[in-house]
Design a protein around this nucleic acid. Sequence first.
DNA 1: TTAAACTCTATCTTTCCGATAGAGTTATTC
DNA 2: GAATAACTCTATCGGAAAGATAGAGTTTAA
Lengths: 148, 148
Amino acid sequence: MISQKAKYALKALIVLAKSEPDSVQMISEIAEVQRIPKKFLEQILLDLKHQGIVISRRGKAGGYLLLKKPEQITFGEILRIIDGPVAPLPCLSRIAYRRCVDCVSEEGCEVRRVFAKVAEATRDILDRTTLADCLDATVEKMVSSITA
Amino acid sequence: MISQKAKYALKALIVLAKSEPDSVQMISEIAEVQRIPKKFLEQILLDLKHQGIVISRRGKAGGYLLLKKPEQITFGEILRIIDGPVAPLPCLSRIAYRRCVDCVSEEGCEVRRVFAKVAEATRDILDRTTLADCLDATVEKMVSSITA
DNA sequence: TTAAACTCTATCTTTCCGATAGAGTTATTC
DNA sequence: GAATAACTCTATCGGAAAGATAGAGTTTAA
């Protein structure tokens, strides 16, 4: 399960991706449209700003906008920022590898071997799907071409 | 991430699958070999017993053994027992579907559409990989044939 | 200068995870 | 038939994380 926070983040980013390039969107506007608690969304967008996904304009008529193009922002990237590693086991994470303390031999671990396949399949989708794939009806084609 | 508990469960079941059919294995034995806290493993095996995965023999010379054949026990089945739904979003779960309260339209939800692919790929692996696939070197062949 | 926006840090409540405790039951063995 | 070695069950606990809220502060446009 991905966290509620990650889901909110993706939804907010999709709103930004769908709006006019270079136009700013207010937190309160996004929060209302997507039914996200406003103060919670503030934190989320701040995180995304610190990670260089969005930029903000303060003051009256302020708001948020994407720093990169929708094609350059992947689902995997956002998930890692908000939820941490995508991997199903700590010993399968690329960004936060941690050896399992209870594992006698990593190479011999059958559980690890199976979940390595899961991790691979998951990354295949998440790291290749971008916000741009959410913009119109080409989504179906895009995603199915990946999994074909 | 799957829980530590689920990992323990799978490891314990693999031990049972690897041991002589119809022979019982003691909790303490499994706990020691796999470095699982014994009292924790008791709970796990009890859960698995209640779900019809293993059976137990009490008293001296007691222990646990598989109720079904290794080929009939999938990773997905065990994960669902221990961790609950495999789905990345509540609205994508088959065993515990729950509509997202913040979702205006489920069909129009781009996040859902992407993660539906993730769920499918994950299930493809987890529901087709069994304990038997962990028994010997055929693992590689098995799993790669699935994802081919 | 004021209003409307973002910024930042703190806190709160609830739930879950991982683990431990301990009293109870069953079955074997001598 | 008593001792012992196993599983059974329920309760509980500490810590972490999730989800959210609060509020004082800063910036900018008008």
